[in-house]
Design a protein around this nucleic acid. Structure first.
Length: 707
RNA sequence: GGCGAGGUAGCUCAGAUGGUUAGAGCGCAGGAUUCAUAACCCUGAGGUCGGGGGUUCGACUCCCCCCCUCGCUACCA
């Protein structure tokens, strides 16, 4: 890997419409923090930025629901999220927010730059518009029947029941969440980033990234082979960064355009604060003077830590934006050097779900387990979903804390400290003859080299295992040398054993620091050393001096009791139960609620245009490679025609042959999956989206009309 | 349906370019020990490497088919 002069490290901007949970932490924040702490400890020039993403439709919806302003929503969650991260020791140099002035300016400048270069393709499209509310409807503001699963409360961008991604125009019976009205399609102009035209250079970029994770590269290549499509970078909405050009009133930048730019504005803000003297901490590891050093210097290494759901934005869209910006500029933005996306963390056998509250929220954990931050950091790192989805189980949490942290690591430290008190009067023993040798051995030890390799390859789980292994080996060493027996015959030898053990404790603290900073400091404290003892390159003899008195031992990790974890498990169970109750309530309510409002008044003439007949199904077969389509042959009394219908979920082909149905016969033909469909079978639908045929209550001749 | 990533001991996970008896930690069983949070240390049992074919002297590792999980993306007037 190339040697970089400095690093700019980002963690995905958490969305400010809710708190953060352990899945977020394990996916994008802890790994980044470990990486950054390690680099700092090695004396690298590194800047670590993050902040809340405060734009986009879900926030406006949440505000509306709670009857407050969007700004109030993001203010609340910005503070909560920021505090949670601070308490978990995520050591951002700055935790900013996209509602800041500086971000709006930066994002607008970005947009204008591309606009002036003629990068965007201006396109006028049809979007749903709510006439009564006098505004365009964002995808999330449109509710209708999910075309895939029949859920009547699907949103225009996604169905939360079946998880499908949707377009608003996919919805059946769409209606506006603002007024309940059926929305109308209306023209609007938006600016598109022509990713299709940029496909070549994006591919060249992706192809040059050999060391990326297979899952990340796989996902990118999947997008590339499917062919990139232009993507709108503006939206008709009033919450966000205003589109800075004339005639764009009521439009804001697409959140995914402005969010990654948030990394840049956060960097700018950092230096602004620093120059103002508003940054009080001494960030010695931030060695360069301005934001452009980090973003526009080819010797800067840009690393984005994200979850797998963000891959396309960080690996394709954001780099494309940067590439477009770079055209004709003297100083070029660097492109992401690596995007070590993690998979997802599951919880007690189920996906973590914000809406169902199936999660371990950071702020809750801090209340239930105060001063146990490192325990969570340890467990989440040891089960981090680095290569595949992984599972958080409270029982496993307990076992890891008790068996690994308390028994192996914590006990080892206490064991050594106690031995030194018992056999060396609580002072670092003098073994001047061999101490240099011991130090050198540690500085060039295989573990040190291995850890460096693993961390730079983002293999934090394995790296941390190696660190704990130091304690394991330390325990072995004591068991083999048995100083408690040797003390009777060879005090000199005991001194050497314990000096070695003390050195191991110090090295353990240093190696542990990126993963468990509090623990590292506690170890240092037991040895009665200052924090500068954690400096990777500081000679051990500067700290473990002859006759240096150490502190008395104390227990670093208390064991987690059965009761404690059972409470947590019960908590989740209770949530499940109350969710089930809620859902039942919802269903009852929705029996009334889900019934759509009547459509606008029509005329008899309009209705008469519909030629609805009675027909009989003669043949029925599944359309291959589809889930919901049946190909039907209908005898309409006048002809026999083919109709494709989305009813395969509810009817088996063999069961419906011979049934009579209502069919709209004068509907313009349409090709579906290559089959020409002539007409439409009329279906009745209940609130669960289940379909049923409408047929005459006594047999009617085929071709009989319905009026 | 298409694409991408996974499916390896009870649990959580490692296993470049195919090669002797498939690994680790925890858990479990047995032993040893007493300096330490009944901790530590040693030994051991446990796997037809999702299923089925194939290529090969030889496959967890390569090819084909199928099943399951997760993500992205479709069709359903």
């Amino acid at each position: 890997m190339k040697d970089f002069k400095r690093y700019i490290v980002t963690s995905a901007l958490p969305y400010a419409n809710g708190p953060v949970h352990i899945g977020h932490l394990a996916g994008a924040y802890l790994p980044a923090d470990i990486y950054v702490r390690y680099l700092r400890m090695k004396g690298e020039d590194v800047l670590f930025v993050c902040g809340t993403d405060e734009h986009g439709v879900p926030i406006t919806i949440r505000a509306k629901k709670e009857g407050i302003k969007p700004q109030e929503v993001v203010d609340k969650y910005h503070e909560l999220i920021k505090k949670s991260f601070e308490e978990f020791g995520i050591s951002f140099d700055i935790f900013s927010r996209t509602s800041n002035q500086i971000h709006h300016e930066t994002a607008q400048e970005f947009f204008l730059n591309l606009y002036n270069k003629g990068v965007f393709v201006e396109e006028t499209t049809q979007q749903y518009y709510d006439v009564r509310a006098e505004q365009f409807l964002a995808d999330r503001y449109i509710v209708g029947t999910c075309p895939k699963c029949g859920n009547t409360n699907a949103y225009g961008d996604q169905c939360e029941n079946c998880g499908s991604t949707l377009n608003p125009t996919d919805l059946k019976n769409p209606h506006s969440m603002l007024s309940g009205e059926k929305p109308v399609l209306k023209e609007t102009t938006n600016w598109f980033l022509p990713l299709d035209a940029m496909q070549g250079e994006i591919k060249t970029y992706i192809d040059s990234r050999k060391n990326w994770k297979t899952s990340v590269l796989g996902q990118c290549n999947s997008w590339l082979t499917q062919g990139l499509q232009p993507r709108a970078m503006t939206r008709d909405l009033d919450w966000g960064v205003k589109v800075p050009i004339e005639g764009a009133d009521g439009k804001v930048l697409y959140v995914w355009f402005d969010a990654p730019i948030g990394y840049i504005s956060a960097t700018k803000e950092y230096f602004q604060q620093r120059n103002d003297g508003r940054k009080t901490t001494t960030d010695n590891h931030v060695k360069s003077g301005g934001w452009e050093d980090y973003w526009k210097d080819e010797e800067s290494c840009l690393v984005h830590f994200i979850g797998k759901d963000n891959i396309v934005f960080h690996c394709i869209i954001f780099p494309a934006t940067l590439m477009a910006y770079n055209k004709g500029e003297a100083r070029q933005f660097v492109l992401p050097e690596n995007v070590p996306a993690n998979e997802f963390l599951n919880l007690e056998g189920n996906k973590i779900s914000t809406s169902r509250d199936h999660a371990v929220w950071l702020h809750d954990y801090l209340i239930d387990f105060p001063h146990r931050v490192d325990e969570m950091r340890y467990v989440l790192t040891s089960i981090a979903p680095e290569a595949k989805d992984s599972e958080f189980l409270w029982k496993d949490f307990q076992a890891r804390v008790n068996n690994e942290l308390a028994d192996i690591l914590g006990n080892y430290i206490k064991r050594v400290v106690d031995l030194v008190h018992r056999y060396c009067h609580g002072k670092v023993p003098d073994i001047h003859k061999t101490r240099k040798e011991i130090e050198e051995q540690f500085n060039t030890s295989e573990t040190t080299l291995l850890l460096d390799k693993l961390i730079r390859e983002f293999k934090f789980r394995e790296a941390m295992f190696e660190v704990i292994d130091i304690a394991r080996k330390g325990n072995q060493f004591l068991a083999e040398t048995e100083p408690w027996k040797l003390i009777k015959t060879d005090a000199e030898k005991v001194n050497e054993i314990l000096f070695k053990s003390l050195t191991t404790c110090l090295m353990l603290a240093r190696h542990l620091y990126p993963f468990m900073p509090n623990t590292a400091k506690q170890i240092i404290h037991q040895l009665k050393l200052e924090n500068d003892a954690l400096d990777y390159y500081s000679p051990i003899s500067n700290h473990l001096k002859y006759n240096h008195p150490i502190n008395g031992s104390f227990i670093i990790f208390n064991k987690i009791t059965d009761e404690e974890v059972e409470i947590q498990i019960q908590k989740l169970e209770d949530k499940k139960l109350s969710n089930a109750v809620e859902e039942m309530k919802d269903e009852k309510v929705s029996d009334g609620k889900a019934i759509l409002p009547f459509k606008v008044t029509t005329t008899f003439d309009e209705f008469s245009k519909m030629d609805i007949r009675i027909g009989t199904i003669l043949e029925a077969e599944r359309v291959p490679k589809t889930e919901k389509l049946l190909k039907l042959l209908i005898d309409t009394g006048i002809d026999k025609r083919t109709v494709v219908s989305g009813i395969a979920e509810f009817y088996k082909p063999e069961d419906i042959i011979g049934k009579q149905v209502c069919i709209l016969v004068n509907l313009a033909p349409r090709k579906i999956k290559g089959i020409e469909s002539n007409g439409m079978i009329l279906m009745a639908e209940n609130s669960n989206g289940e379909l049923a045929f409408i047929n005459p209550s006594k047999e009617i001749d085929n071709g009989g009309s319905v009026k």
